[in-house]
């Protein structure tokens, strides 16, 4: 456990706020990052980088109550850019999870199939799908988050769903359902 700060060394309030923010929001960010990267370690790395950048501007951002939105936006942008740099290495299907997958129950199979299908999408397609169907953002919100047009969101989402149907026909049931959106 970290030693208690000596009197006079109390961290400034903004740092206390930031730490509380990190504790509260890390789980939510990691879940999204896990979908974006398909890997626990890469997800932690991504969230850590996004939060560190958020920390640099914390005083300004927090004043406007925009900590979470800022961190999330940085995270999505970092992932899209990082993916461009390492496309070849990471385009290989995701590593299997470190811990054993629960024996053949359907839920585990769906997870595995979905994870592999997600990793076959481009960075932007995956980001659009995660924002639209995991974060439940509207097309306009997704467009603002990624700094792309609503039209691009629409077409990228369409292509991503088509690709999911193609690479993972097992998931056709729900991807067909999403068609209605």
């Amino acid at each position: 456990m970290a030693p208690l700060p000596l009197s006079g060394e109390r961290p400034p309030d903004e740092l206390v706020d930031f730490d509380a923010f990190v504790r509260a929001r890390t789980p939510s960010l990691i879940r999204a990052a896990y979908l974006l990267t398909g890997d626990q370690h890469l997800a932690e790395d991504l969230v850590q980088s996004a939060l560190a950048r958020t920390h640099l501007h914390w005083r300004k951002i927090e004043h406007h109550g925009g900590g979470e939105a800022y961190a999330r936006k940085v995270m999505y942008h970092l992932q899209v850019n990082r993916w461009r740099r390492r496309r070849v290495a990471e385009a290989i299907p995701a590593r299997l999870p470190d811990r054993p997958v629960r024996s053949h129950d359907e839920r585990s199979v769906t997870r595995l199939v979905l994870r592999q299908a997600l990793m076959r999408l481009t960075d932007r397609q995956r980001a659009v799908l995660v924002l639209r169907y995991f974060e439940d953002m509207t097309e306009a919100e997704t467009a603002r988050m990624l700094d792309i047009s609503v039209g691009t969101v629409k077409s990228q989402a369409a292509k991503a769903l088509a690709k999911l149907r193609e690479t993972a026909p097992e998931l056709a049931a729900f991807t067909a359902e999403e068609t209605a959106r």
């Binding site: 990691i30 896990y34 769906t110 997870r111 979905l114 994870r115 997600l118 995991f134 998931l171």
Partner: peptide, 9 residues
């Protein structure tokens, strides 16, 4: 399904 997969993290 996405939420289920994300819960693996």
């Amino acid at each position: 399904s996405l939420h289920d997969l994300a819960s693996e993290a």
